[in-house]
Simulated scan of single mutants.
Amino acid sequence: MNARRSTSGLPRAGDESTPERKNPLGATTGRRSRVRSWPAADSRKRTAAAQRAEQLQLEQGVRYRRIFVSLLTVVVVVSAVVVLLGTVGLFTETRSRPLTPDEQNQYKQEEIARRWEAWPATGVFPEEVKYLGLDRAQQYARRVGIAPETECGKGVDASVAGVLEEHGCVTMLRATYVDQTASFVITVGVAVLKDEESRVSAGEELGQDDRVGVLPVAFPGTVTERFGPEQRQRTGWVGAGPYLVFSTAGYADGRTRAAIPPEEILHSELWPTAKSIGNQIAYFLADPPKVPPCTQGNVC
């Protein structure tokens, strides 16, 4: 016999035809499980929070920008001050101003010291040189030739060469002259020292022996061709600036020193003539130049 159903139409407990439901925790239940959803955040609150975060970032960016601008301003100002001070200093240093006494003296020394190199050879050894003859009459010695520039030790006697080389002699310049009558032959030698102090020191060590000094320079085919070391009657030197100006003289006819009596050597017109020519060339080299009054010429 079939089982009787309930008048309510609901399945009875234990009816195998009715499916069982399980809740999320695994427990069997006869009712449908309902899970309440988590309430969503309020959209206005989210918007406000986003705006606050954006505002904070903006304020932070503004602060960084102000710091950067401040640092950049400091750098620009410092750079401008440095440039201004440099410009003022450069203007002060380079503007024309009167030369001090020390600067004037330095200008003279530098101008004199470079003449041997800046001037042509004919400037160091002029074609004609004035000298005083008998009765102090003004006469002119004529240049016969200019020797090639040589080492100091090769233009003088050995005893003189040692002194020059010890004190830094740079070079030796030589030229040969004859007096107005072409009776005397004179070789003038210019020893270039590194500075005036060296020249003074070298001069203090040079002896007074009038038989040694500059070596003669003869030019074949001229009246000077017989002038050699044995024909030197006397030698001497004079200091001028950084230069030692040597001179030596002999007779154009080739007479040696040994052939001339000592009395004639001492009282001959030959040596005053040679000494005067050497002094004139020394004067040309050491003549003080005209010094400009200002650092940039004649206008301060």
Rank of each mutant, 00 (worst) to 15 (best):
M1T: 11
S6C: 13
P11N: 08
R12Q: 04
R21F: 03
L25T: 10
L25Y: 15
R32K: 10
S33C: 10
S37T: 11
W38I: 14
W38S: 15
P39V: 15
A41S: 14
A48T: 06
A50Y: 00
A53E: 14
A53M: 03
Q57I: 05
L58T: 15
L58D: 08
L58G: 10
R63V: 02
V77Q: 06
V78A: 08
V78H: 07
A80G: 10
A80Q: 01
V82T: 09
L84G: 12
G86W: 01
T92I: 01
T94K: 04
R95N: 05
L99F: 03
P101W: 02
D102N: 14
D102H: 09
Q104D: 07
E110V: 15
I112Y: 07
W119C: 03
P120T: 13
G123Q: 07
P126V: 04
K130L: 07
K130E: 02
K130I: 09
D135F: 07
R136C: 09
R136M: 13
R143P: 09
T150Q: 11
C152P: 09
G153F: 08
G155L: 11
D157K: 10
A158M: 01
S159T: 13
V160Y: 12
V160R: 14
E165S: 14
C169M: 07
V170R: 01
R174T: 08
T176Q: 10
Y177K: 09
S183E: 11
F184P: 04
V192G: 09
L193H: 12
L193V: 14
R199E: 10
V200I: 05
G203F: 02
G203A: 00
E204R: 04
E205Y: 04
L206R: 08
Q208I: 15
D210M: 08
V217T: 02
A218K: 13
V223L: 14
P229K: 12
P229R: 15
V238W: 03
V238R: 04
G239T: 13
A240I: 13
G241D: 04
G241K: 08
Y243S: 13
V245E: 02
V245M: 00
T248F: 01
A252L: 04
D253W: 00
P262N: 09
E264I: 12
E264A: 13
W271I: 10
S276P: 09
N279I: 02
L285A: 11
A286F: 03
P289S: 06
C294M: 02
T295I: 03
V299I: 02
